[in-house]
Structure formats: C-alpha cells, structure tokens
Design a protein around this nucleic acid. Structure first.
Lengths: 190, 190
DNA sequence: ATGATTTGCCTAAACCTTATAGGCAACTTA
DNA sequence: TAAGTTGCCTATAAGGTTTAGGCAAATCAT
C-alpha cells in the first residue's frame, strides 16, 4: 500500500495542470484521483471537495499571474509598461487556458480579499504613473484597462474573433496603441 | 397522468430563467425536471441532453441580446449610439446574469455561424459609422469595444469592482467618455 | 529500538446527475 | 371511434460527490 505523496499543494497543482489540459469546468475530484492513481476518497483528506479544489486552483492562478505581471512591468514605464503588462495577461490566457478560466471563478469576499486579486489592480495602477491622470480618473482608467485585458483574452479564448479578418493577433498591438493614445489624451471631466 | 405541456422552446426558456436564478453553471436537466414537476427522462424528448440545453439557452440569450442592442442603436449616432449600445450590454448582464453567462459558452463553429453572434459585431461596426475610421482600424475598434463591453460586464458581475471606491456605476460613464474621445482621436498607424 | 501517535490511503455506502430503452396513456385526426 | 402520434412514465446503468470508519505506514518519544 505505497503512498502517493499527496499534499494539498500537489493536488492543487495537478488540478491546475488538468484544467489546462481539459478545461477548468472539467476538473473533477474523480479525474484528479485517476491522475494520481489513487481512490477518490483519498483526496478528501487534502481538499474539502470540488468547490474547495476549484477555489485553490483559482488562488494559485491569480498568484502566479500576479507574479508574472509584476516581473513584466519591473523597470518599465509608459507604453512599454502597458504593453508588457497587457502581453502578460494575453500570453498567460493562451498558455494556461484552464488556469486563466479559474481566475474568473467568483470567490466569496473574504477569500477574494486574501487573494492576489488586489495585486492586479495595484499593478495596473502602477503603469498609470507614466501617464498624467488625476483621481478619480486614474481608478476609472484602471478599470478600463482591466476590462480590455480581460475582455480581449476572454473573447479570444472563446473564439469570437475567429470568423472575421484579420487575425486577432493583428488587432492586439493596434488596441495597445489606441489605449496608449487614450491615456495620453484622457478627456477631462465636464 | 396530466401532461405538463413541455416543448423544446418552453424547456429552453425555463432553463434561461433557472440560469438567471441560480447561475448558468448550475443549470441541469434534473433541476429543470423538478421545476416542471416532471421526471427527468421526460425532458430528454425535448432536449438532447445537458450540453444541448445549455447551447439552446446560449442561442436564446444571444438572439435576445442582439434584439435589444438593435433596438437601442436605432435612430442614434455617434456617442449617443455608443452609450446606448454599451448600456444595453451592461443592463442585460445585470438583469439576466445567467443568460449573459450563457452567451460566453463556446459554440462549435457551425452553431456559432447560425447564431446571432455575428449580429453583435455588425451592430458595433454600425455605431462606428459616426466616427471616421479607415479599415482595418475599424475592425480593431470593433474588437476593442467588444472587449470593453464584455470585460466590464464580466468583471462587474464577478464582483471585481466591489472592493474599491468609487462605485463601478461611476466609472462606466467616464469609460464611455474615454472611448468616445478615443474613437474621435484614433491614432494613425505608423 | 519500540511502543504510541499521527498521517495517508483504503473500503463501503448514500446520494445526485446524466443518459438510454421501452411502455402505457392521452391527445389528434380522419 | 379507431388508428396513429406524442408525452410522460418506470427501470436501469454509469459516473461524480461526499462522508464514515478502518488498517497500515511514517513519525516521534522514551
């Protein structure tokens, strides 16, 4: 009766890998048990259940993405920083579709508060230092950028851009050009 | 043995209502059977199964949303049209969260082609008539607007804006101001 | 080292959802 | 009102979730 060496971390990581392979919605405690070649009930010592597992994958992905985002904007400013951050999100969504989908899981307030979620808005706020926006427009701009990054990755992943020309990849740099131009010429409140 | 009067349309509509109440992911053939006070197997005469049901709900929502969007931009131009379209998406996402989530279901290519999906990009393209954008920038702008509408609704629904001030409702008009300004001053390709 | 304790994975079982097959009753139509 | 169609049924099987309780392996104390 050899032990498989399960821990909560290892189970969560395997769940994230499974999500990238088969989709976040398809992640199940049973599938994970098969992957470890272990009986289903064994996993219940490490995660509380299906929802707990998915929440842990979401937290893992949020933290991992925040780390990458943080690295990407370090030492950059202005449009350079904007592009780096935006590309980090787009690349992560493409490389890790399951993990990326996990970041959109609705977390209960206290879990969300303890997550890396706040770090993401902090990072977006940081790249706005290179532009000259007074509050509260800075907050509005953070939300606009978040919407674009998330919305584009989401529609791209859903294949929404697949049936029109040109390639989504062609639109991306022009969208970043446009956002940069917008941030440099942000309209004043009337 | 009274008949419940099930039809594919009625089952789909009830599925959409259920989605708005408990969330799109929670829509199940079983739950729907309970709602009709009918045995599960009975529903299988009307929908092929769980995936078919969800697909039908998605198509219903896409069509319904396209109708509303179409109504909202009729007779408007420029920023007025932009605001009307944007608000239609935001309002629909708030009023019908389950249906809105359904619109993000990944459809297989031929189903997607037969859906109202294309109408949405047509409508967005239409409001750009009020601005002066050459191709291919018009397409890039359509994608940007789609990303913002979808991304904002999505983040708003996920509660991502809940833990920072001010209210998301305050950001929305300013984001539309910003998009209008951007479309009027779209940066030229270098 | 060896007994005690903790930890890890197990069997067993109950419940829910999906899905299919086949049957009888209730509507429809002629 | 008989024939045909449709609508909902029972029965059944397979797979996922979750809990309870048990034995063995690893770890710790003496």
């Amino acid at each position: 009766m050899a032990r498989a060496g399960l821990t909560t971390e290892r189970v969560t990581l395997a769940g994230a890998e499974l999500a990238d392979e088969v989709g976040f919605e398809q992640v199940t405690v049973s599938a994970l048990a098969r992957r470890f070649d272990v009986k289903v009930a064994s996993l219940y010592s490490h995660v509380k259940g299906s929802h707990d597992l998915k929440t842990r994958i979401a937290l893992l992905a949020l933290a991992e993405l925040a780390d990458r985002a943080s690295d990407s904007v370090a030492g950059r400013a202005g449009k350079d920083a904007l592009t780096a951050l935006a590309n980090t999100y787009r690349d992560y969504a493409r490389e890790h579709p399951g993990r990326y989908a996990a970041t959109r899981l609705r977390l209960d307030p206290e879990t969300a508060a303890a997550s890396a979620g706040g770090k993401h808005s902090q990072l977006t706020r940081a790249i706005l230092r290179g532009y000259d926006l007074p509050e509260p427009d800075r907050t509005h701009a953070v939300r606009l950028l978040g919407s674009v990054f998330h919305g584009f990755a989401s529609l791209d992943a859903a294949g929404s851009f697949d049936h029109s020309a040109p390639d989504a990849a062609q639109s991306w740099p022009r969208i970043l050009d446009a956002l940069d131009a917008l941030l440099r010429n942000w309209p004043p409140a009337e």
